[in-house]
Every structure is written in C-alpha cells, then in structure tokens.
Design a protein around this nucleic acid. Structure first.
Lengths: 187, 187
DNA sequence: ATAGCTTTTTATCATTTGTTAAATTCAATA
DNA sequence: TATTGAATTTAACAAATGATAAAAAGCTAT
C-alpha cells in the first residue's frame, strides 16, 4: 500500500495535510535479519510496513521474548521513545526482507503543533493502537493459551505460515514445547 | 486535585484551552458499589477520579475478571466507546465513594476539532495510556505472578489495603487461592 | 541424493496453578 | 460481648505448563 492510503486509513485528513506527512516520509529497504530498532536507545523514527513481517522482542536470561508482530500496513513504534523520549526495552527484528516507510518523529511532532488535522491524526494513531493493545491484554488475561492460539489461527493464519513457531509460542506466553502439545491436541 | 491540575498534568496547554475543557466538565458524587460504566453500552463520557477507587471488570461464566484499577487523578475511559463509538466489554464499579470529573465525549471531540492545543492534549492522553497499557501487557508476559504481586506491593501499596484480595488476584491473572499461597510464601 | 543444519514434535518428570471444600480470621453491629 | 456474614487462608487432589533431552521432520547447499 502507498503511504497516502496508510495515512488516511488511520484517520482521514485533507490532502494538503497528508502531503505534509508524505514530505517527511522516506522509503527504505532492509533485509531479513536486520534490527530496525535496538533496545536501550531513543528511537527517532516511526515506521509503517509496506511489505514484510517484523517482530518486537526483549532479551531475557532464558532467551528472547516476542511480544509483538508487525504485518503489512501496521505501524512500528517504540512507544516509550515516541511518547516520553526515553529508551525502550524493545528490539525490532525483520523476519523477512521489508519495505518500510520511515518518518522522523521530531519533524512529525513539529507537524502536530502546526496542523490541527495532523494533530488529530496523531491522536487517532495512538487511540487505535491503544484499543488493539488493550484487547491483547484482556485476551491474555481472559483466555487460555489454547484459545489464544486458535484465535491467532483464525485472525492471522498467514502469520503462522511466515513465522517460526518458537516466536509464536513466546508471543502466546508459553514455551514452544507447550505450543507443540496444544497443536497436536487440536488436530 | 482540581481539574486544571489534572488537565495540565497530562499535557501542558494554554489557560484558555484548559478553560474550554473545564467548561464542559462537571463534578459528580457517586457512592461505593454503583456502576459508573456498563458493558455493552456506548459510553458518552470520560471521567477523571478526584477521589476514590474504581475497578474495570468483565463478567465471565466463572465470575468477574478485574483487569484494571483506577486511583486518584487517573482517567476512566471505555476505550472502544471513546475511540470507535462501539459498546465496550467493561463494567466500571466504584470500590469506594467517589468524586469524579465527568466530560462528555461529543463535546470533547468538538474541542479536538477546534483547538490544536486540545487536540494535542487528547493525543497525549491516549499516548500516555498506551504506554501504561503496553507496560502492563509486557509485565504480564515477562513476569511471574509472584513478581507481579510484589511489583504491585511496591508500586501501589495502598491499593492492597483498599481493595479485596479477590479483585487483586483476578487482576494479577490468578485465583484468589493461588494469591494466598504466594502471599504466605513471601512472608 | 545426502550431509549438516534448523525447526518441530514427543517423552518424561518437576513445578505451578486451578478447583473444591473446609477452616480460620476479620469486621460490623445487635 | 456475642453473632453473623464476608474475606482470607489452608488442605488435598487434578490439570496445565515448564524444563530437559532426545527423536523426527524440514531445509539448504553441494
């Protein structure tokens, strides 16, 4: 998808305002395996995924913990950097070769303070992410690992095809061994 | 705290803009046990807690599930209503007599479209809530129930004193029996 | 095709948490 | 103070998940 579609899909704004955002947007290609974001650094950009899959994770004593997957059209943000200008805990790794739109957050903040449509666009961006995050939190609290897996299976079936199960298990909050057990019971 | 402090604590805005928000704010008193928000209804207000404690929960087959506590100065929002104008899954119950600031969301939305400072205030409100929600999600994924409990104990010790343990257990994602076991091990 | 690698599954046992029920403690008030 | 009801803890067993190791299945490059 092109950037104008992605912008207006979040919140519809006048063409002139969309253009202002587009003017501070650049297109980048990165290959599978590279790190888009590094933990403990203040990140100065947000990204939109034109093509590819990424995962957000933190490194723990007993290996990685994946807490997020980003697919086409989704935004990639280090929230603590974006919101508080603080270093974040998250690494973002490219699970496939990716094409990304990159927006510098200082320039975006400038637009927030100049253009009320863009300010409200930024509000909607945060609000929509908030609803998604809240739903994930409640899903985690209310549902069993089995339910969360089957949910993933119906909602984003291609994720399961494009991502190693170890990452999926970690995302579901269980071990890979446990996920394997769940999968064998379901069939 | 007064409403002007609460507003500017989220994001500092000019006095004139703060006044516009204050003009659509009213103060309400509600007593312990009442329901501030009901599930499956589109909620037309957001609230700020001047005094008291509330909890957000959903009703499940095997009892309530508490997924949020609101304390003094915090915002009470049914996010799906606020963001998407959709009915939400959450009930909000007052655990103490409360004094609340109420803001009608239609009028607030009006201000978002008129005043760029208020639009950015609304952006910050969502962004800050997002960071908090994300931290809770990751805490749930990374930490054990015991860690989450001791975390709660250090971060909001008075919550433990003001709220029945059954709600706390539910919030931590474990049963009350299990929380009791954890508590006895810690001592 | 196969050697070498990674990913996934299976098996076993230990640990944690859930479920149910009973016992205990706490708090309000008659 | 005694009584009642709610909140909390304890106990006993069942179920789910974790940890570790080994086996099986898939991939990739030669």
């Amino acid at each position: 998808m092109n950037i104008d579609f992605i912008i207006n899909n979040i919140y519809s704004i006048p063409a002139a305002s969309s253009l202002k955002i587009q003017q501070i947007t650049s297109l980048i290609n990165l290959e599978k395996g590279s790190l888009l974001l590094k933990a403990d650094k203040v990140e100065k950009s947000i990204y939109f995924i034109k093509k590819g899959i990424v995962r957000g994770y933190t490194s723990l004593e007993n290996g990685d913990l994946t807490f997020w997957f980003g697919l086409e059209n989704q935004v990639v943000v280090s929230m603590k950097s974006y919101v508080n200008n603080e270093p974040s805990y998250e690494n973002i790794e490219l699970l496939e070769d990716c094409i990304l739109y990159e927006i510098n957050t200082d320039e975006l903040l400038q637009l927030y303070n100049e253009d009320i449509h863009i300010a409200n666009w930024g509000r909607k961006l945060a609000e929509k992410e908030l609803v998604k995050t809240e739903e994930r939190l409640i899903s985690r609290q209310v549902k069993t690992a089995t339910q969360r897996y089957t949910e993933l299976l119906t909602n984003t079936p291609d994720l399961l095809l494009r991502v190693p199960l170890g990452h999926i298990a970690s995302y579901l909050g269980i071990t890979q061994v446990s996920l394997s057990r769940i999968r064998s019971k379901i069939k």
